[in-house]
Amino acid sequence: MKKPSISFGGLDLLASAVLVLRSDGYIAYANPAAENLLENSNKVLATHRLNELFLNADELDVVFQQAVEHQFADKRQDLTLERMGREPLQVHMVVTALDNPDLPVLMELRENVQQLKLDREERLIDQSQANKELIRNLAHEIKNPLGGIRGAAQLLELELPERHVKELREYTQVIIKEADRLQTLVDRLLAPHRSLHIVGDVNIHEVCERVRSLIVAEFPSGLKIRRDYDLSIPEFRGDKEQLIQAVLNIAHNAAQVLSSHIKSGDAEIVLRTRIARNVTLAKVRYRLALDLHIIDNGPGIPPDIQDRIFYPLVSGRDGGSGLGLTLAQTFVQQHMGLIECESRPGCTDFRILIPLP
């Protein structure tokens, strides 16, 4: 079929994805934003019907036919478009019926950023709850036999024959020391569930300054910690020590992965505070929220663990326990907040959101 000779030049400038459809359902035109969203060129898209692009295209077919039959002038709705081997698209769709028999339908697709954010937050919260249950159960299962192992090693040490005490005591001490090391790990896993939530007035900049002083004391040269504070942020009710620990865990991780930058003298961590407005956390809408960023210029988080960094015992650093971020997320969630992360080489940004009064 010969394509109508019509110019779509004006649509090329739009930031939202636009498709113009022929009466047979084939794509006559896709603007650059649509090419980017659908990950195909205009030339390739023109060989497909709209319903061939998605696995769940029945709803699109219905809307397309309604537009062809001029049952509406325009129609808007939110959709999740499933794609083979790729992430589904969360979009807000606007379908316009055109007064052109050859090109009867114009479809605009806008990525539904808010829905994506809500889905991501819901996954983080569900993940964190599952982590807490797993940690609690696992820690208790480990804790009981550990005491027995340590006690048995101590009793065995007392029964060692005198002529072999020196060489055999080395082995019993290994058992005792390793049991103590595991006990310390278990105590850290259980710490957020044991410690009392001591609530008082919290000034977030006092928290940041405390963290800054601790990091500077450990890394006195080669690391710059830049403050970027909004001093208008009000105090809020919270557990100051828990928040210090949460921010310190993130900042300390950042300082450790900056080791090569510290040696060359260009390592930087930014502590930035802002107020976020109209924030939704755990499906609850808040008028104001603390928006705290801990940003470093390090190598970034390895892509294969970016979705799992808040899981217990997951670490992107040799020798890391994988507990720092898990505990930080737990402490922030106890303040009805959430930690998010975006990372690429040269910039890792941990964002802490906590509701404000």
Rank of each mutant, 00 (worst) to 15 (best):
N56Q: 03
V95L: 00
A73H: 09
N31S: 03
V94Y: 08
P145G: 03
L45E: 00
R123P: 07
T47K: 11
H48F: 04
V62Y: 12
E141P: 11
I125G: 14
E111F: 11
E133M: 12
D102Q: 09
L138E: 08
D58M: 00
A153Q: 07
N51A: 04
S41I: 04
A34G: 01
E69L: 01
L37H: 05
Q114Y: 09
E111C: 02
N31R: 11
F72C: 03
R83I: 05
T47L: 05
L79P: 14
V62P: 02
G85A: 02
R110Q: 14
R83E: 02
T96D: 12
Q114C: 00
H48E: 00
P101C: 06
D99P: 03
R83V: 03
M84D: 02
N131C: 05
R136K: 14
A139K: 15
G147Q: 04
N131R: 01
N51W: 10
L156G: 06
A152W: 15
I142K: 12
P32S: 03
Q65C: 01
A73C: 06
H48Q: 00
A57L: 10
L158R: 14
P101I: 03
R76Q: 02
N42P: 03
Q154L: 08
M107P: 05
R123S: 14
V68D: 15
Q127D: 05
L53P: 04
E35R: 08
L155T: 09
Q66W: 07
L146Q: 04
Q77N: 08
Q77F: 06
Q71I: 08
D58Y: 13
P104K: 02
H92W: 03
D74P: 03
E122D: 15
K132W: 05
N112G: 01
G147C: 07
A130N: 00
N137K: 13
V95I: 04
A97F: 02
T96L: 12
V44K: 15
L53M: 14
L116M: 04
N42L: 14
E52V: 09
A139R: 15
M93S: 07
K143T: 11
E157N: 11
N36Q: 11
K117L: 13
L160P: 09
E157Q: 14
N31E: 10
P88C: 07
A67I: 01
R86Y: 01
L38V: 03
N137I: 07
D119I: 05
F64E: 15
E159S: 15
N56K: 04
E162K: 14
L156K: 08
L160A: 11
L53H: 10
A34P: 00
E157A: 12
N137E: 15
E35P: 05
I149P: 11
L37I: 06
A57E: 00
V68R: 02
R86V: 13
G147I: 12
H48L: 01
P32C: 12
L158K: 10
Q129K: 07
V94G: 09
